[in-house]
């Protein structure tokens, strides 16, 4: 027994010796080798420059999307502020909510899907941050209409309790999704079945013919209503579309959402911009 322990002890030391050898190699000779390769690359690069071969241009995607932002830590002494730094953005964001991983609409339309009406797109994107697309773009009618809406987690997609009381307005890590009635059962509109259909379409898109692609898109957008829900449908005291109390909004928040301040603002927008909002596409033509 003692002999086995002694052997194990020696083996552990041997492993430790190898570990140290690797570290020593990395901080010594590996550095020299790395520097040599860097220098060779620089020489190659200089040769290419001399031969005036055009440098490979970065794609628009690399320029606009990949180079867009970086994670930074600001050391303030009493706290460390960790956030995404967006190039050219002055104000601090202070947190990172992350993309909506459940929404199948976002796979094509992105997390900021509204861009047609210049004056309203930011407002609409703000709502899209905590309201699923189907909430406004699908109008259920007849037996399918349930009037039931619930919160789902942006990351896991699971139905969760209302986050309204825990977070500041609009900073929820959850979104509101409507439910429809299918054969008497409650089914969320962004069902797994729909999600899988869109995922398969995305995978096979390039191999499809024009007709097949068109048919698939029609099927995906089949439930989308021609006219979306408009602001006043929710921002009103009488009968707001969303059951705000059931969604966990406290009375003071409901009052704020349906307040004269907000409703008055919407009226101003209606006067100036809303007609264009109701006819998507016209805004961009005018710009």
């Amino acid at each position: 027994m003692l002999n086995i322990l002694k052997k194990l002890y020696i083996l552990a030391f041997m492993a430790l010796t190898i570990f140290f050898m690797i570290i020593i190699w990395k901080v010594t000779f590996a550095q020299i080798i790395e520097e040599y390769h860097t220098r060779q690359e620089a020489i190659e690069f200089a040769k290419i420059k001399q031969q005036q071969k055009p440098e490979k241009e970065k794609t628009a995607f690399e320029k606009l999307v990949l180079e867009g932002d970086e994670k930074v830590k600001l050391y303030l002494g009493y706290r460390v502020l960790e956030e995404t730094r967006i190039k050219g953005h002055f104000h601090h964001i202070g947190f990172d909510i992350g993309p909506d991983k459940r929404s199948y609409c976002n796979t094509c339309h992105g997390d900021m899907p509204h861009d047609d009406v210049k004056e309203l797109r930011a407002f609409l994107n703000m709502h899209a941050f905590f309201i699923a697309c189907q909430t406004c773009h699908v109008k259920l009618e007849g037996s399918k209409k349930t009037g039931i809406y619930k919160w789902y987690d942006r990351t896991t997609g699971e139905i969760v309790d209302s986050p309204v009381k825990k977070y500041r307005p609009g900073t929820y890590k959850a979104k509101i999704v409507p439910f429809e009635s299918v054969n008497g059962k409650l089914v969320r509109l962004d069902s797994q079945e729909n999600s899988e259909f869109v995922q398969e379409f995305r995978e096979k898109e390039k191999t499809l013919t024009e007709v097949q692609r068109s048919r698939a898109k029609k099927m995906i957008h089949e439930i989308v209503s021609k006219q979306p829900v408009i602001c006043e449908n929710c921002h009103q005291k009488e009968a707001p579309l969303l059951p705000l109390a059931d969604l966990g909004y406290p009375k003071e928040r409901i009052d704020a959402i349906t307040s004269t301040e907000v409703v008055g603002m919407i009226k101003n927008y209606t006067q100036f911009y809303m007609p264009r909002m109701l006819h998507p596409g016209e805004g961009s033509k005018k710009d």
Binding site: A60, L64, V65, G68, D69, L81, I86, G88, H89, H91, H92, I93, G94, F95, I97, G110, M112, H114, D115, R121, A122, F123, N125, M126, H127, A128, F129, F130, R168, P169, G170, T171, D287
Partner: peptide, 24 residues
């Protein structure tokens, strides 16, 4: 105050119009 108040402009640049009140 809403973090989602944002858009991507014509040049593809993200315009984040959110003000984090606590930090500000």
């Amino acid at each position: 105050k809403y973090p989602g108040l944002s858009r991507v402009d014509e040049k593809g640049k993200l315009r984040l119009l959110f003000i984090n009140e606590d930090i500000f």
